[in-house]
């Protein structure tokens, strides 16, 4: 475990939970990012503004951090652009078909003790473990 950063993980996680809790307490909405973004494709006009505002908040976070000297996030991606595109398509399609992603099923679903969300989280976690094992170590492939 060379790169374990438990304290920043816990603190950052607590802020993620705070954002999700505050969104429910204030606006009555669930902080599932794929649902908020993908919901724009079928939302009534009156249901759009809060979604756009939440997404804008996500994008604004690193911009505000940059004002205080933090570098903008430009993560290192080891896979080719073709693999990145395939990953994006699968993440977009799959999260909408499965009705949620790491935030909606993972964080909010576990916090609600929803069997449906816990099942979804277990499935995408196990699938992701298997995918990384095959891609990085060639198991089963």
């Amino acid at each position: 475990m060379h790169n374990l950063t438990p304290l920043s993980g816990l603190l950052g996680g607590a802020l993620i939970g705070l954002g999700a809790a505050a969104l429910m307490l204030l606006t009555g909405r669930l902080a599932g990012v794929s649902g908020i973004l993908g919901g724009l494709l079928r939302a009534a006009p009156s249901d759009r503004d809060w979604r756009i505002a939440f997404v804008a908040g996500l994008i604004a976070a690193p911009l505000i951090a940059a004002l205080f000297g933090a570098p903008l996030p430009r993560p290192v991606m080891t896979s080719s652009l073709a693999i990145v595109a395939i990953g994006g398509l699968l993440v977009g399609f799959g999260s909408r078909m499965g009705n949620g992603c790491t935030s909606g099923h993972g964080v909010c679903g576990f916090a609600r003790l929803s069997a449906r969300s816990i099942a979804a989280t277990m499935i995408f976690m196990l699938t992701a473990f298997a995918t990384v094992a095959i891609v990085r170590h060639g198991f089963g492939g």
Binding site: V33, S34, L37, V55, L58, I59, A61, P62, P73, R74, P75, M77, S79, I83, V84, I86, G87, G88, L89, L90, V91, G92, F93, G94, S95, R96, M97, G98, N99, C101, T102, S103, H105, A119, A120, T121, I123, F124, M125, L126, T127, A128, F129, A130, T131, V132, V135
Partner: peptide, 22 residues
């Protein structure tokens, strides 16, 4: 859907929230 999402997440290491922040 969760299987497809898991494959995409495992391929790249990015899910919707971090994608938008990035």
């Amino acid at each position: 859907g969760s299987v497809l999402f898991g494959i995409g997440w495992g391929l790249v290491g990015i899910c919707p929230g971090p994608a938008l922040v990035n």
